[in-house]
Design a protein around this nucleic acid. Structure first.
Length: 473
RNA sequence: GGCUCCAUGGUCAAGAGGUUAAGACAUCGCCCUUUCACGGCGGUAACUCGGGUUCGAAUCCCGAUGGAGUCACCA
């Protein structure tokens, strides 16, 4: 059986957006599942949209996400170069071949004529230059007149192909335009470069966005004209921000690196986007890349667009975070601990054990510890708790005892506090509530009374208890 | 507007003629609990509409509606 070869062919226009990453992921998974090859090709035929550094971002993101490509610009391969601008000469050669057999023709129409044509109500090019004689064409080229090469699409008939997720797609040839294959600057358009490269790189499964679903017949006509075997097609519906808008960085939607910066784990991001538009047979929702490589299949691909739901990704992220060891959490959260300066005064390793089970994102180390900065002048009514029947009055009463316990038995605080409750006829919860409020000044904390005491340390605990007692008096 | 595609709860998404129409997130409630969270249990909530076909349609057909894509010397 023929080896499966898929590719991811992004344009270096800045960043790798979530939709692009998912396309890459599916292409990668499909190839891996089949034991095939996944190749990366950079489509930079549009010099105007080129952004410096964008290529590096693509390499970096793909690698970081674990989507290793078998062939690509920076890893090489048998069908290079893998950057279209470095293949410029190849395209013209094939365009000429197409011209020779009638599948394409030279066109000298000026922008002005094209505009006029459009204004006159024409919906597509009128094949004006198709009638030029070979001699005239040669003469005008020799005279240095600028030209483009257009595809010659039959005016009759229709073209059909089978998309592996959408089924048969048929388009009337008369609805297709004689698109430009080679631009006047000598560069191929996407339409042409794509076909030539996919063929030359032996790509037999083309996985890309649905925006190409209805123009694929044009590409097939090129394959036919060049005598090449058509590849299989798999088109993917987009990931949406809401029901009517695609997810896009331009509109402020987060990209892969934004989510990393927000404290998402790459495993969670990959896992989540895999689920947007695909679901495994058994409906599992949490799996590693390696597992996906085994489970992936075209049957699970959805025919409709899906809306990105950060809440669900957060949940998935929290699942991955909870699984981390304290040590791993600490290592991964380091950049975030650094982000919140007040945490410098605390033992972040100890904190990791407390935060790991509560954080949904790595950045939550800030949100969950914010109370540490708010202790001064906290609201004393926090001592009131309906369930435990506590209030400021009770707090004033027992705080001196609690201070004493901390002075003498700080190392064995939990037991000592329990013992105190027992002896004083109070409920455990009453003592602990008052104690925890008194040392943290927060209703919600990432740990219980004794854990918070350990985090703060004896000195801080004592000084806080005394401060609070004074305020209450 | 022409052409192509799509349509199950708020979201993702099973389902491929006969189901009490799964599951997950979110939401609500209860339990657990020294707060919060985690975890456990339970609730609310869906087949866009209208015609067919059929003994029987979320599933098949047609139409309408809604949405997306595409009609560039952008990819």
């Amino acid at each position: 059986m023929e080896e499966v070869r898929t590719r991811f062919a992004p344009s270096p226009t800045g960043y790798l957006h979530i939709g692009g990453l998912r396309t890459a992921l599916y292409a990668y998974l499909f190839a891996k599942k089949q034991g095939g090859k996944f190749v990366l090709r950079i489509e930079d035929t549009d010099r105007e949209r080129y952004v410096d550094g964008a290529v590096e971002i693509i390499y970096k993101t793909l690698r970081e996400a674990g989507l290793y490509y078998d062939e690509g610009p920076d890893v090489g391969g048998p069908y290079g170069p893998y950057i279209q601008s470095e293949r410029k000469n190849t395209y013209l050669e094939y365009a000429k071949q197409l011209v020779a057999n009638g599948g394409a023709y030279y066109c000298f129409c000026s922008k002005e004529r094209l505009e006029k044509l459009h204004e006159s109500g024409a919906t597509k090019y009128d094949k004006h230059c198709l009638s030029l004689s070979k001699e005239e064409v040669e003469a005008r080229i020799a005279a240095g007149e600028p030209y483009v090469i257009r595809q010659n699409i039959p005016e009759e008939g229709s073209t059909t192909y089978t998309d592996m997720v959408f089924g048969d797609i048929t388009v009337e040839n008369k609805d297709l335009e004689d698109g430009i294959l080679i631009k006047s600057d000598g560069m191929p358009t996407y339409n042409f470069a794509n076909v030539v490269d996919d063929h030359l790189m032996h790509i037999n499964y083309v996985i890309r966005g649905v925006e190409y679903l209805s123009s694929t017949p044009k590409y097939n006509l090129m394959y036919d004209g060049l005598g090449w075997e058509r590849p299989h097609y798999i088109h993917l519906q987009p990931i949406m921000r809401d029901a009517t808008h695609k997810l896009s960085k331009r509109h402020g939607d987060a990209s892969y690196e934004d989510f990393i910066a927000k404290g998402y784990l790459k495993e969670a991001i990959i896992n989540y986007i895999a689920l947007l538009g695909w679901s495994p047979k058994d409906n599992t929702e949490k799996f590693t890349l390696a597992e996906m490589e085994q489970m992936f299949g075209l049957e699970g691909i959805s025919k409709s667009a899906s809306i990105f739901d950060e809440a669900k990704m957060r949940w998935l992220n929290s699942q991955y975070i909870h699984e981390l060891s304290d040590e791993e959490f600490y290592e991964k959260a380091k950049p975030f601990y650094a982000k919140y300066q007040y945490l410098n005064d605390f033992d972040c390793k100890f904190l990791s054990g407390l935060l790991k089970g509560r954080a949904e994102t790595l950045d939550d180390v800030g949100r969950l510890t914010e109370f540490l900065t708010l202790f001064d002048n906290f609201d004393l009514t926090l001592f009131r708790n309906a369930k435990w029947k506590t209030d400021e009055e009770l707090a004033v009463k027992i705080l001196p005892d609690l201070i004493g316990i901390c002075k003498d038995k700080f190392d064995n605080l939990s037991d000592s506090l329990n013992e105190y409750a027992l002896n004083s006829g109070l409920k455990k919860g009453q003592v602990l509530w008052i104690f925890r409020i008194a040392i943290t000044g927060a209703q919600n904390t990432p740990g219980g009374a004794s854990e918070m005491a350990e985090l703060l340390g004896k000195d801080r605990v004592l000084s806080r208890l005394e401060t609070v007692l004074k305020r209450l008096q």
